[in-house]
Design a protein around this nucleic acid. Sequence first.
DNA 1: CTCAGGATGTATCGGCTCGATACATCGACG
DNA 2: CGTCGATGTATCGAGCCGATACATCCTGAG
Lengths: 194, 194
Amino acid sequence: MAGGQGRVLELAVLGSLHETSLHGYELRKRLNALLGMFRAFSYGSLYPCLRSLLEQGLIAEDQPAPAAIVGGRSKIVYKLTAEGKERLQDLLTQAGPSAWEDESFGVHFAFFRHTEAEVRLRILEGRRSRLEERLDSVRTALARTRERLDSYTLELQRHGLESVEREVRWLNELIATERRASQEPVRDTTSTDE
Amino acid sequence: MAGGQGRVLELAVLGSLHETSLHGYELRKRLNALLGMFRAFSYGSLYPCLRSLLEQGLIAEDQPAPAAIVGGRSKIVYKLTAEGKERLQDLLTQAGPSAWEDESFGVHFAFFRHTEAEVRLRILEGRRSRLEERLDSVRTALARTRERLDSYTLELQRHGLESVEREVRWLNELIATERRASQEPVRDTTSTDE
DNA sequence: CTCAGGATGTATCGGCTCGATACATCGACG
DNA sequence: CGTCGATGTATCGAGCCGATACATCCTGAG
């Protein structure tokens, strides 16, 4: 569909290219370093994405510095086009489910420095309520079937719930920090305990 | 390929059907209750999987009790065949990467009560070393680029690392418990330090 | 009593992503 | 001089998801 629900990679690529021009291999390394434990994209998704972005005119081939050509092996360096920058701004404004689902939240978060404060807050809160919904539904399902489950399954449930509860606590801290930061408008010589 | 690396659903379905015969809808509910926060399968994967299993002769249609037919709406109840049971035993013996990767570990774990003690231990240890590898690679990558990262990315990295470290600790406890349990058989007075 | 909405139920389609794989070149090290 | 690992681009098959469609049953509000 033209929607583009799961197109996290698009944001990831456009966002990475915002700073510097890059070629596929390097792009992947940077991306995976940026996202750390959160997720790792493979070539199987990266290269098709680059082609698609190229066809859409959101990125373009950028000639590497002449010096690099001499000794360098064949590489294709991409840069962001004007349309690409526009699209990136667009994606950074998205604050709906596509920004707080499991697969995409981390990518949006990783580019928060380019995101407006209000959007950041909405994404954070959206993710939190998403997790709390899941927590609720799993907890009630668990309460209903608890006695029929063996100890391994119970242990899995417990660990899963705790992990998510931990993420909710993390989100709460982040939200509190965001709120505090946004309330700090022009503040002259009062005690700013930064 | 005939390999079957990512065929977690197959194990999940076969394992669920081991206890009772079930139809798709109920199967999905049970599965999602069983796996809790860990993961949720959709119909888009469940029904194709059921068909494939049926074609392979691993499951078969089971006539529901006549009483249920009268008032019941159309449902297709599946049961495990002899070959299915065999295949299930086979899958429960797998202790390689397919049992400890992110997407599959939880499913294998959820059926641990049907798994041999030795296999359980190997899966647990395999997952632990898998996570430790990732931890290492992310930590070194992070150390190399720390100063170039903004505070949001750093925060994401920190949270990600802590989550995985937490899972490693959890695995350590489980492994210790497993070891303790397996050392409880007839033990004469030799110091067998593995 | 009626009808709408929600749970139960089966099924498919498009699309994304991964893992494996195939090439090819470069630098380093023995 | 050979080979091994990092660099680099690219594709393919397969698994899984989300959305969607369609049909029946039950419940409860009007």
